[in-house]
C-alpha cells in the first residue's frame, strides 16, 4: 500500500474529520492538502456567517498530522504535541477552506510542521499554523 492510499485511509478512518466533511486532495513526502467545505453548521459568528476558528483548528491539526505521517522518515503514526494558529482574516462565507501543511523537519521523536489555510483568494491566507507532532509507530 503506498503513502497516498495510507493517507486516504487515514482521513476516512477519522470520524471527526469526516464529520467536518474533510477531503484529502494531495499528499507528498511530508506534505498534505486537505479541503473542508463551507457548512452552515460550522458557523462561529451568526451575524457574519464566518466559520468558527475551532473548525479551522481541526482542519489544520488533521492536515499537519497527515503531512507528518507522510514524511519518508515517519513510521506512520503521530499525535499532536502542540499547535499554534494565527487567524489573519475571517474566511469568506460560502467558500471552502483549503489547508496545506509541510513537515519541514523531523527527528526520531518529533516532527515540525507548518500549515497555511486559504479560501478562494489563495494570495491572502486565512490562517497559519505551526506545530510539533510525535513520531511513532502506526497505531
Amino acid at each position: 500500500m503506498d503513502k497516498k492510499q495510507i493517507a486516504e485511509q487515514f482521513i476516512s478512518a477519522i470520524p471527526h474529520s469526516n464529520a467536518l466533511g474533510m477531503r484529502l486532495t494531495d499528499v507528498g513526502e511530508g506534505t498534505a492538502e486537505i479541503e473542508m467545505p463551507y457548512d452552515a453548521r460550522f458557523v462561529g459568528d451568526p451575524e457574519t456567517g464566518v466559520i468558527h476558528g475551532g473548525a479551522v483548528s481541526a482542519l489544520m491539526d488533521t492536515c499537519c498530522g497527515a503531512a507528518a505521517m507522510s514524511h519518508p522518515a515517519s513510521p506512520g503514526g503521530t499525535a499532536t504535541i502542540d499547535l499554534r494558529i494565527d487567524y489573519m482574516r475571517p474566511a469568506t462565507p460560502g467558500q471552502k477552506i483549503r489547508a496545506r501543511a509541510e513537515c519541514y523537519h523531523i527527528t526520531r521523536s518529533v516532527a515540525f510542521l507548518r500549515a497555511t489555510a486559504m479560501d478562494d483568494d489563495a494570495d491572502r491566507p486565512v490562517a497559519q499554523a505551526t506545530g510539533t507532532f510525535t513520531v511513532e509507530a502506526k497505531p
Binding site: 477519522i14 470520524p15 471527526h16 474529520s17 467536518l20 468558527h52 476558528g53 475551532g54 473548525a55 483548528s57 481541526a58 482542519l59 489544520m60 491539526d61 488533521t62 498530522g65 499525535a79 499532536t80 499547535l83
Partner: peptide, 8 residues
C-alpha cells in the same frame, strides 16, 4: 478524541 475537537 481528535486533537482538533479538543482544540475547538
Amino acid at each position: 478524541l481528535h486533537g482538533g475537537a479538543t482544540a475547538a
